[in-house]
Simulated scan of single mutants.
Amino acid sequence: MKTALITGATSGIGRATAIRFANESINLILCGRRQEELDTLKNELSKLVQVHTLNFDVRKNENVQKAILDLPENFKQIDILINNAGNAHGLDPIQTGSVEDWDAMLDINVKGLLYVSKAVIPQMTARKSGHIINIGSTAAKEVYPNGNVYCASKHAVDAINQGMRIDLNKFNIRVGAVHPGMVETDFSKVRFKNDDERADKVYQGFDCLQPEDIADIIHFVVSRPYHVNIADLVVLSTAQASSTIVNKS
C-alpha cells in the first residue's frame, strides 16, 4: 500500500482528498494546525487504512522538518505528497493592502509549500520514485482586481511546480499541479475574516465546484500508470469562465 502526506487536511480539498484516498486503500499522514479536527478525521478513516497525524504550522520550518523526520517507521516512506495547505487573506487593492495579510499568504502558500517539499523530497530522490501534487488556483493563471498578492503567491506555486518537475526529472519523480476555480469551502470565510454573509455570497447563484470534485481529480492524477504524469490541470465549474466571469442566476 502507498502512503500519502496531505497538508491542510482538516477541511476543504485536503479533507475530501484524505477521505477519497482512504477509500482507495492509501495510507495517510494528515497534517494540520487543528489537532481536534485531525483526531476526528483519524478516528473516521482508521477503519479503512493506517492513519498518522502531524500537528504543525507549515510556516514554521523547524517544526515541519522535525515532524516529518520523526515519523514512525511504518510511515517514513512517503509515496505521494499533496501540497494543499494555502489561504487567501483579504481582498484589497494593493495601495491599501495589509502587510500582515501579505505575509500570511506568502508564508503559507509559497514558503510553507517549499518547507514541506524540502522535508519529503530527499527520500523520493533516494528511491527514484514519488509523486508530488501542488494545489494551485486559477489565480496562478490570471490576475483579478484586488487579488494582487494572493495571485502572486499562486503564480509562484505555478513556477515552483514547473521548476520542481524539471529538477526532479532525472530522479523519475512525477510532479504536477491542480488549479481549481471557485470551490465551496471555508476559503472565503478566511479571506473575509469570518464575515459569513460576505463569504456565502461568493458561492450563491451557481453550481460551484465541491471539495469532492477536486479530490476525485487528484485521485485520478495519482492513479495513472507511472509512465503518465499529468503536469498541469485547470478545473472550473461549468458556470465559471474566468476569475471574474461567472454565470450566476
Results as ranks from 00 to 15, higher is better:
residue 22 A to D: 03
residue 177 A to D: 07
residue 163 G to P: 05
residue 143 V to W: 00
residue 203 Y to E: 13
residue 90 G to V: 10
residue 24 E to G: 00
residue 51 V to W: 04
residue 33 R to L: 05
residue 86 G to R: 06
residue 62 E to G: 01
residue 140 A to L: 09
residue 229 N to M: 02
residue 27 N to C: 05
residue 233 L to Y: 08
residue 115 Y to W: 15
residue 124 M to P: 02
residue 179 H to V: 01
residue 25 S to Y: 07
residue 29 I to M: 11
residue 149 V to S: 01
residue 184 E to T: 05
residue 241 A to F: 14
residue 62 E to T: 14
residue 43 N to R: 01
residue 162 Q to F: 12
residue 101 D to R: 12
residue 81 L to R: 07
residue 72 P to W: 07
residue 136 G to I: 10
residue 46 S to M: 11
residue 73 E to R: 09
residue 117 S to R: 00
residue 119 A to D: 03
residue 152 A to M: 14
residue 156 A to P: 02
residue 131 H to Y: 12
residue 81 L to Y: 03
residue 109 N to I: 03
residue 162 Q to V: 10
residue 138 T to Q: 13
residue 30 L to H: 06
residue 103 D to N: 15
residue 33 R to F: 00
residue 48 L to E: 10
residue 119 A to E: 08
residue 142 E to K: 02
residue 48 L to Q: 13
residue 163 G to W: 07
residue 3 T to K: 04
residue 173 I to S: 12
residue 151 C to F: 06
residue 144 Y to M: 10
residue 220 F to Y: 15
residue 238 T to S: 12
residue 191 R to S: 11
residue 65 Q to S: 12
residue 133 I to Y: 10
residue 94 I to T: 12
residue 52 H to Q: 11
residue 156 A to N: 02
residue 222 V to Q: 07
residue 194 N to S: 15
residue 221 V to C: 13
residue 155 H to F: 15
residue 129 S to C: 13
residue 122 P to N: 00
residue 57 D to W: 04
residue 231 A to L: 10
residue 50 Q to Y: 04
residue 126 A to F: 02
residue 27 N to A: 07
residue 191 R to Y: 06
residue 107 D to C: 03
residue 48 L to C: 02
residue 115 Y to V: 04
residue 161 N to G: 14
residue 93 P to H: 10
residue 22 A to K: 02
residue 79 D to W: 11
residue 141 K to F: 10
residue 227 H to K: 13
residue 41 L to H: 11
residue 174 R to Y: 03
residue 23 N to A: 01
residue 1 M to C: 04
residue 203 Y to R: 13
residue 152 A to Q: 02
residue 110 V to I: 15
residue 8 G to A: 10
residue 132 I to T: 04
residue 28 L to E: 08
residue 112 G to Q: 11
residue 159 A to S: 15
residue 210 Q to C: 04
residue 93 P to F: 00
residue 165 R to I: 04
residue 23 N to I: 00
residue 176 G to P: 12
